[in-house]
Amino acid sequence: MPLATRVAEELLRRIQAGDWPLGHRLPGETTLAAQLGVGRSTVREAVRELAGKGVLAARQGAGVYVTAVDVDQSWDDVLRLAEVTLVIEARTAVESEAAYLAAQRRTPADIRLLRQTLAAREGARGVIEDYVDTDTAFHRAVLAAAHNSVLLELFDTFVPRIRQAMIAMLRANPAPAESDDAGHAGLIEAIVAHDAELARTLSRAHLSELSANFAAR
Rank of each mutant, 00 (worst) to 15 (best):
M1D: 01
M1F: 02
P2F: 04
V7Y: 05
L11P: 07
L12D: 08
R13S: 13
I15K: 03
A17I: 01
D19N: 13
G23P: 14
E29S: 13
T30D: 11
T30R: 15
T31Y: 08
L32G: 07
L36P: 09
R40G: 05
S41R: 12
S41W: 08
T42F: 02
R44P: 02
E45I: 04
G54N: 05
L56S: 05
R59F: 07
Q60T: 13
V64D: 03
D70Y: 12
S74C: 02
W75Q: 10
D76E: 13
A82S: 15
A82W: 04
L86C: 10
I88A: 08
I88S: 09
T92I: 13
V94Q: 15
E95M: 11
Q104D: 05
I111H: 08
L113A: 09
R115Q: 14
R121H: 14
G123I: 03
G123M: 04
V132F: 09
T136Y: 05
A144C: 10
A146D: 06
F155G: 10
T157Q: 14
P160R: 00
I162W: 00
R163S: 12
A165W: 03
M166N: 13
R171M: 09
D180C: 08
D181W: 01
G186L: 04
L187W: 06
I188F: 03
I188Q: 06
E189M: 05
I191C: 07
A193G: 08
H194P: 02
H194A: 15
D195L: 07
E197Y: 02
R200P: 06
S203F: 09
L207M: 11
S208T: 14
E209Q: 09
N213F: 01
